[in-house]
Amino acid sequence: MNVIETKNLKKIYSQGEIKVNALNDVSINFKQGEFTAIVGPSGSGKTTFLNTLGGLDKPTFGNVMIDNLDITKLKANKIIDFRLRNIGFVFQSYNLIPVLTAKENIEFIMLMQGYSKEKRNKRALELLDAVGLSKESKRRPGQLSGGQQQRVAVARALASKPKFILADEPTANLDSSSTKNLLDIMYDLNRKEKMTFIFSTHDQRVIDRAKRVITLEDGKILSDKIT
């Protein structure tokens, strides 16, 4: 079953008088439980593609269907609400809220969704346990290592029980041990909970663990391989 379908996605940026085709007629589907890496050189359109899938960017042309809903047609506040309930994000620079503790960062998403205090507390502790950070629950991001912050970011992305997680270069700032640790956690979640992960990455360690690798170049799909 397709979770995401894109049809003829085009994204054109204007840089002064020059028009840049960041995405050029991209049509592709993602199924439930995929563990997909999107690869390609810098400027190939990986981040733009992820942003468009997540509704952070609107395509110039084309559609993004998530569970048969065209999110490109949603209004600004509707798309924010849709993201909140359906999509988890993991960013390259972790991007946790610095004034909240690890646990509060995870709870924040659930709070926005109206979870009760008990449910928030229970799930946040479960997720912290899942990413191996139970003991760090009361620490703020500034008191955590990069790897630990990224694991909190994964836990945060999972908090709202999204349909899929978009991760933009999640291991770019991590050392090998943290990268392995993070990939193990995400791989486990994918295997056990059938959580769909879509990464953009340059990292061969991530590509090696991916079940599907899509290569982008100049905004076009160059290859789409199941490994």
């Binding site: 952070l56 506040n77 609400d81 620079s93 969704q113």
Partner: peptide, 14 residues
């Protein structure tokens, strides 16, 4: 800016 962008990305409405 980045933090506000994250908050908007993860679902904090305007």
């Amino acid at each position: 800016k980045r933090e506000l962008g994250v908050l908007m990305s993860v679902g904090l409405n305007k």
